[in-house]
Design a protein around this nucleic acid. Structure first.
Lengths: 299, 299
DNA sequence: CACACTTACGATATTCGTAAGGATT
DNA sequence: AATCCTTACGAATATCGTAAGTGTG
C-alpha cells in the first residue's frame, strides 16, 4: 500500500482550475479557498507527483512539461469521478434506480397496483420490477436478492426474513346479485353447505385458506380454476358461488356479482410485508416501503 | 465548488480492498491501517456518497445495492488514476520522455554526439530530438519551446535566455600532411598570408569568426562551401588550407589531413549552453544538462 | 511601488492507534 | 467463548486563514 499515489478530487480540481485560470488568486477563489491554502494544495500535488507541474513567478503561471502531461489526464479523471458519483447520487435521490417487488397475483392486482402507480408517479426514473407469483416463489426471490420486498398473505417464520404485518382482509361470499342466499339478513358459514362452489386451484393460497377454514362445511366443488377473473366469470354465468378476499371482488369489474361479509366465525387472511434480514434495502426500495406503509395507514 | 464530491484515492483503495476481501480487519491490513481507522475511512466514503455501501454484521460484509453500483466504477477509476500517475512518474524517472537539443552542425557532430550516445544508453526510453541548424534558428527553437537546450559558439545576450559558458575551443590550421607550412616549428597567423584558403559559406559561424579575427591577414579565397566535410575534401585534394575548430578536424576521418595550433594571437571560439529563462526544464532535459556538464568537467 | 506567489504561524479539523463496547455465531 | 465491527478518546497530523516576506515588472 505504500508507494501508491494518494490524490484527492480537491487536488485535481485545484490543478484543473489553475490550468484554466493561470492565476493562483483567482483559482483559489474558484475553489473557495484562501490563496495560501490553495498554493499549499498545488504544492501537495507536486509533492505527490515528485515534479513541479507549474512554473510560476509573480507575473506568470505556466505548465511545465510534466504539467502538460498531467493536464491531459486530469480533466478526464475528474470527469469520470463526477460521472460515477452523479450516477450514484441519482440512485440515492431516486432519479434513477430499480425496485423489485413480488406478491401473490391477487395482492398485486388489488392492494399493490395503486401503490405502484403512486410510486411511479413520484419517481418515474426508477424501474419497477413486479413479480406476481406464488408464495414460495415470492420468498425465494427475496432470499436470492432478486426482489427487494415480498407481500404475502400468510405469516412467514424464518430467520432469513424480516416480517412486517400489514392488515387483515376479510373473505366475502361472492355470488350473483339474484342469488337466493342474499335474501337472508346475514349469510352464515353453514349456509354455504351444499352450495355449488367455484374453487381456485390447490396451489393457490386462497384455496388453501378456504380448505383449512371451511373444512367443516360440506360444499359441492363445481370446478377449480387458476385465475381469479375466471372464478368471477363462472359465478357470473350461474355455475356457482365462491368465497374470496374482499378487495378482490370489485377489481373484477363485474357488476352482476355481489359480495357479502360472512356471519359467524370471522374468516380473513393477514397480509405481511417481507424482506431479507441480512441485506439492506436500496434507496429505491426503502422509499417504496415507506409509500406502501403510508398508504395503508391512510386507508 | 461546494456540493462537489471530494474523494481521495485512499478512500477508493479502501473501498476496493473491502469489496475484494469482505472483511474489515484484513482489508485494513492491506491498507496498512488499524481496523478502526479503516472503518472510519469506509464510513467517510459512505458519508460522501450519502448511502451505506456495505451491509455489515460481525459475521458478514456485503455490498448494498448502491455499493454494487459504485463497485462497477471504483476499480476503473482507480486504474485510470494509477495509469495517469505511473505515466507521469515514468517521465519523472526518465523511463519515458523527450528532450530536444539544438546546436550548430559542427557542435552537433563533435562535442554533442558522444553526450547524446551516453544519454541514450542511460535512458533509452527518452526520445531525443536533435536540431542541427544555424545559431539564429537554434535560439528561435529554444524561445518557442521546441528545443529545451541550445549549444552555441557565441555569447548570447538577451533577457529571454539563460546562458551558461562551457569551454573554449581553439582554431587550428588544417592542411595536408605534406604541406610546406608544417616544416616550420610553429605556424604564426601571419604565415597564412597569401595561402590558398577554403572558406565556409558566409552564413556559417566559423566563417564569421575567421573573417572577424583574421581580417588583417590577406588570404586567397579558393572557394566557399557549406559543409565541413567538403572543406576537408578540398584540402585533401590540394586545393588549399583552412582554419577550423580543433575538435572538428579528427571528426572528418581524413588521415591525410594535419591540424596544428596557430602561434601568435590566440584564436578560439567559446561554447555556451542556452535555455529559456521563463520555462523550467523537463526532467529529461535537466538530466541531459547534467550529463553534458559532467562529461565536460571530466575532460 | 504594486501585484502575486510563498513562508510563517496559531487555531481548527481530521486522522491515527489503543482500548473498551456490542453483536453474532 | 471467540470473532469482528463500532464507539470513545487522547495524541499526532493536516489544513485553514491571517499576516508577513519576497520577487518581478
Amino acid at each position: 500500500m505504500n508507494g501508491t499515489v494518494n490524490i484527492s478530487t480537491r487536488q485535481l480540481r485545484a490543478f484543473v482550475a489553475l490550468v484554466e485560470l493561470r492565476n493562483f488568486t483567482r483559482a483559489a477563489q474558484k475553489c473557495c479557498l484562501s490563496q495560501p491554502a490553495f498554493s499549499a494544495l498545488i504544492q501537495s500535488i507536486e509533492a505527490e507527483a515528485g515534479v513541479r507541474l507549474f512554473d510560476r513567478s509573480t507575473r506568470h503561471v505556466e505548465l511545465t512539461a510534466e504539467g502538460q502531461l498531467f493536464e491531459q489526464w486530469a480533466s478526464r479523471l475528474l470527469l469520470d469521478f463526477d460521472t460515477a458519483f452523479v450516477n450514484l447520487k441519482d440512485h440515492v435521490t431516486l432519479r434513477r434506480g430499480r425496485v423489485a417487488v413480488s406478491a401473490l397475483p391477487t395482492i398485486a392486482a388489488t392492494m399493490l397496483a395503486p401503490v405502484l402507480a403512486e410510486y411511479h408517479a413520484a419517481y418515474p426514473g426508477v424501474a419497477i420490477e413486479m413479480f406476481d407469483t406464488l408464495a414460495d416463489a415470492s420468498l425465494a426471490l427475496v432470499r436470492e436478492g432478486r426482489a427487494d420486498l415480498a407481500l404475502t398473505a400468510g405469516k412467514v417464520e424464518h430467520p432469513d426474513f424480516e416480517v412486517h404485518r400489514l392488515f387483515d382482509e376479510p373473505f366475502h361470499l361472492v355470488c350473483r346479485r339474484d342469488d337466493p342466499l342474499l335474501a337472508r339478513p346475514t349469510v352464515m358459514l353453514d349456509d354455504l353447505a351444499g352450495q355449488p362452489f367455484i374453487h381456485m386451484v390447490r396451489s393457490s393460497s386462497i384455496r388453501q385458506k378456504i380448505e383449512a377454514e371451511l373444512a367443516a362445511v360440506p360444499m359441492r366443488m363445481v370446478m377449480e380454476v387458476a385465475h381469479l377473473a375466471t372464478v368471477g366469470a363462472m359465478i357470473e354465468s350461474g355455475l356457482g358461488i365462491s368465497v374470496l378476499p374482499a378487495q378482490a371482488v370489485p377489481r373484477l369489474g363485474m357488476p352482476s356479482l355481489a359480495s357479502r361479509p360472512l356471519g359467524g366465525k370471522p374468516l380473513f387472511r393477514t397480509h405481511y410485508m417481507i424482506q431479507a434480514r441480512q441485506r439492506s434495502l436500496s434507496a429505491a426500495a426503502v422509499t417504496f416501503r415507506e409509500i406502501l406503509l403510508a398508504r395503508l395507514k391512510r386507508e
